[in-house]
């Protein structure tokens, strides 16, 4: 404790006090723990296999090669398919886009109905929905298999889209409900007086005003759906496996020699989409996860 007896006024700033050295030192060391895996993944993916066998995971590459990246993307094998992670990537894209649109569309309308068009029982359904967010997915996995079979979507991309819509609903509905509830009632009433109805008010007034919260919802859903493994592995077939599932199958396959550089390139490729979103969105990501925090 250096500055114990402080006079009033702002703290004097000394760059090299013992306190600062301790503070920044600790933060630097902790930062290394957090950055280490990313560093290791990047350097490993840029090495060749002979170099990996000679060195260790932390040594920087002597000879930089992108061969592992190319192989991970277009040649790595899962079972009999040897067309690389690109298949999983495009599957994930095909799952992601409709899932994000559908889940956010449905949830925003739900939130809007719950905040401005309450009807008898609406709050009860909402409460059930929120409690449902805490139920372990494992309890609902099999009944959903039956439901998807009944409507003929088991194993298809659209089945998975539906599952993502259902499980994204609690948190997104909460997000939109709270946002729409903060929009002044007067605005809503004025639109009603002008003769606007449910959908008219939604599309002409609420939607344009809610753009920031839509961005938060999109960030939340894109990272969440892209990172999903559980639903992907259960509700799709090998041909429609999302990227995370395919990645796990490539890296943890028991056949063949382990190609660590290819594995790390594949891992990085899969992590790239959420990482780009994270670094590009900054504060909005924090807002998204703060909202998503309820989901856990």
């Amino acid at each position: 404790m250096v500055n114990t007896v402080d006079p009033s006024g702002p703290k004097p700033r000394r760059a090299l006090s013992a306190r600062n050295i301790m503070l920044y030192g600790t933060l630097m060391v902790v930062s290394m723990y957090y950055l280490l895996p990313l560093y290791v993944m990047v350097v490993t993916s840029l090495k060749g296999m002979p170099e990996i066998r000679l060195g260790n995971v932390f040594s920087p590459p002597l000879e930089i090669t992108t061969a592992a990246w190319t192989k991970a993307w277009s040649e790595a094998c899962t079972g009999i398919n040897c067309d690389g992670l690109s298949r999983g990537f495009w599957n994930s894209v095909q799952i992601l886009i409709p899932s994000v649109i559908l889940s956010i569309g449905v949830a925003s309308v739900n939130g809007y109905a719950l905040s401005h068009w309450k009807f008898k029982g609406s709050e009860t359904f909402f409460t059930i929905l929120i409690i449902g967010a805490f139920i372990p997915y494992q309890t609902m996995l099999y009944p959903i298999v039956i439901l998807l079979r009944e409507i003929g979507l088991m194993g298809s991309l659209w089945g998975l889209v539906l599952v993502h819509t259902v499980f994204g609903m609690p948190i997104l509905t909460l997000l939109f409900r709270n946002y729409f509830a903060s929009i002044p009632e007067e605005l809503f009433k004025a639109a009603r007086v002008d003769g606007a109805r449910f959908w008219g008010i939604y599309f002409q007034i609420m939607l344009p005003m809610a753009l920031p919260i839509f961005v938060v919802a999109i960030i939340l859903q894109v990272t969440g759906i892209w990172n999903d493994f559980l639903f992907g592995v259960i509700y799709t077939k090998p041909e429609t496996y999302p990227m995370t599932v395919q990645l796990n199958n490539i890296v943890n396959s028991v056949q063949g020699i382990k190609e660590y550089n290819v594995n790390m390139a594949a891992t990085l490729l899969t992590g790239l989409v959420p990482l780009v979103i994270y670094f590009a969105s900054g504060k909005l990501f924090v807002r998204g996860i703060a909202a998503g925090a309820v989901k856990g």
Partner: peptide, 8 residues
Amino acid sequence: PFALSFVV
């Protein structure tokens, strides 16, 4: 790291 999936 929170942006990354558990698989990664």
